[in-house]
Design a protein around this nucleic acid. Structure first.
Lengths: 340, 340
DNA sequence: CCCTAAATCCGAAACGTTTCGGAAAAGACA
DNA sequence: TGTCTTTTCCGAAACGTTTCGGATTTAGGG
């Protein structure tokens, strides 16, 4: 292993100056910097991250701990997220690693162990639940972490979208076109984002002086088979809904499949609208007819998440507590007015 | 952060003795050990892994680098592997982390960067190809690593199954039951395990004095949709095979689906046999009729992989270069003699 | 020519741990 | 009592890096 000392000996300099030269500090002769850099290259020097970590207290590594799963859809979704985060962190010079826990393992404890052993500068938490134990542990430890999503029961820095807005806009878009019997396929009630979306939907009804009892909120794991099953059920009702809000594109895929199977044409006999996080496995443009709804690419979220965590690590700056990403909208061809 | 120094001050001992007490060395009074352990507990001491890593040169972290993918099946498969490895390593006191690279990223370079920065004791490599650049890089660096599978072009320690044996036994089992036109769905020819299995299959033909031209070897990504497609093609041939060897259970799923769709009964009109690595998403026992073939649970592989890597890290012991896991066999109900 | 400021360098300490070499105390044996 | 061994302890160095405080040299201004 080539160390600073090796370079300093090679050049007849002090270790200090070599370190400062490579760190591009001001008080070292530009020529010296050149010589040092050349020598470092020539000798194949690589800074030892462990030693640096010991001295600076930072390792340049951020981690995410997730529970293992056997669901292909969930796995794929997760890996997609990890790829996005990895790319973003490597862009800003941090390394992102994943620790996959056993399904029955205590992830809050794992966060604690990982943090206390040192060597991890910060954490990413995704899919928070209410009273999330991971967040509780990280807060207690004073660790740097940013949450994608939000746990309203605890103060923490987070990057999120306006889920109330999502619910409102999706519902409003349908209500404006005469729909009243609307089914909302979303996550279970233990997630705050789902609660918020439902709240938005209710408000949209209220703002038009309508009774939101006509809306049917159904909670489920947000994967295609569940959307399929729910839609089959819905379409067999006597008063089946005229429109379905799919919480994400995976659910929408299930909706499309069920509708096709029941010979219910989209959008003629059923309008479908969704929130698209840009993470669809096959690309949202593979929907026929094109799927409409709100848009907020998760890839945008990752750059905010990464930057925010970087700031938190650099300075214990908890001034900026939240970052709400903007919402787009795609018309698509999956929504039709019931008045037509 | 509580350090050894804090404990030593608290107890009026030297840092040395505290360290040795916690390390359970011999030359410290049993009573002192007790006191030290109690104080460590009371103060909430956690050894700093970074400092320890700097001194000992070991971090207790092993890593695997994989390329990201968008395929749900591949993702799920990968996560299943990672879960298995994580469990095994955590059992022997090592931490296992995953680094997910971008699909177009140079993983050999990533291994190098990770290793040279220090802080990673060893690596796991899976799904090696011939002349695998990752293996080349790790060998050059002198890093500790173990490969699951084998690259015959390079010397490296590996844990594997007898793939020649797999090909031989699967083919032999069918040949003994009168099958001659056998299709073998396997991976592409760039993988050694596939080459070996094919070699085994050919030898099984030869040992019975048969011409292996009757066998049809088809390479493909080993996921269900590919198995499905291939089987559809095969069943539409004029001289369609009487038996199919599916390289893994995912392919077998595709085979079953296609056969069902073509109204070809298993095993009456088509025998199916596979190699089961115990990683099937839905469990191999969900096949109807029960799928037969060779068995070698990957979970067994992980304990060998973990133990072997641990040994390599402890001592640069490269005496034990290979570990070949035993092969089981399940009769199942998916194979029928053509003579009946 | 002296004084000050800027530019460039270096020694030493520190981060928290492990470990080598020895030291002190206590007991065993003559 | 003196010597030798065993038990129990400790100081100090080391791992590779960063950084504080100061030292030396050079240039600038009067």
């Amino acid at each position: 292993m080539v160390t600073l000392k090796d370079i300093s000996r090679d050049l007849g300099l002090s270790v200090t100056q070599v370190s400062r030269a490579l760190g591009d500090h001001t008080d070292v002769n530009p020529q010296t910097k050149q010589r040092v850099r050349a020598a470092a290259d020539r000798l194949g020097y690589r800074p030892n991250a462990v030693a640096r970590g010991l001295k600076t207290g930072r390792s340049g590594i951020v981690a995410m701990v997730v529970s293992g799963t056997r669901s292909p859809e969930v796995s794929a979704h997760l890996l997609e997220i990890v790829m996005g985060l990895s790319a973003e962190f490597s862009r800003i010079g941090l390394r992102f690693v994943l620790h996959v826990a056993q399904p029955d393992e205590d992830t809050a404890q794992l966060h604690e162990d990982l943090f206390l052993a040192g060597g991890i500068d910060g954490f990413i938490v995704i899919s928070p639940q209410r009273q999330d134990p991971r967040i509780k542990a990280l807060r207690r430890l004073g660790a740097a972490f940013v949450v994608h999503g939000r746990d309203p029961d605890q103060r923490h820095v987070h990057v999120d979208i306006d889920n109330y807005g999502v619910g409102y806009r999706l519902a409003d878009h349908l209500l404006a076109r005469g729909h009243r019997r609307i089914a909302f396929l979303t996550a279970g009630d233990h997630t705050f984002f789902s609660q918020e979306r439902v709240r938005g939907l209710r408000q949209a009804y209220a703002d038009r002086g309508l009774d939101c009892a006509a809306a049917q909120v159904i909670g489920m794991p947000m994967i295609a088979p569940e959307g399929y099953r729910a839609t089959r059920d819905l379409l067999s009702q006597t008063q089946s809904p005229t429109a379905i809000i799919a919480g994400n594109t995976m659910l929408a895929r299930g909706v499309y499949a069920a509708a096709a199977e029941c010979n219910v044409a989209i959008p003629d006999r059923l309008s479908v609208i969704t929130h698209d996080d840009g993470l669809d496995l096959f690309g949202t443009d593979t929907f026929d007819p094109p799927l409409g709804g709100t848009i907020s690419p998760l890839s945008d979220a990752w750059v905010s998440v990464a930057r925010t965590l970087q700031n938190m690590i650099a300075a214990q700056n908890d001034g900026l507590m939240e970052c709400i990403l903007p919402l787009g909208f795609r018309e698509g061809g999956s929504i039709q007015s019931v008045l037509d």
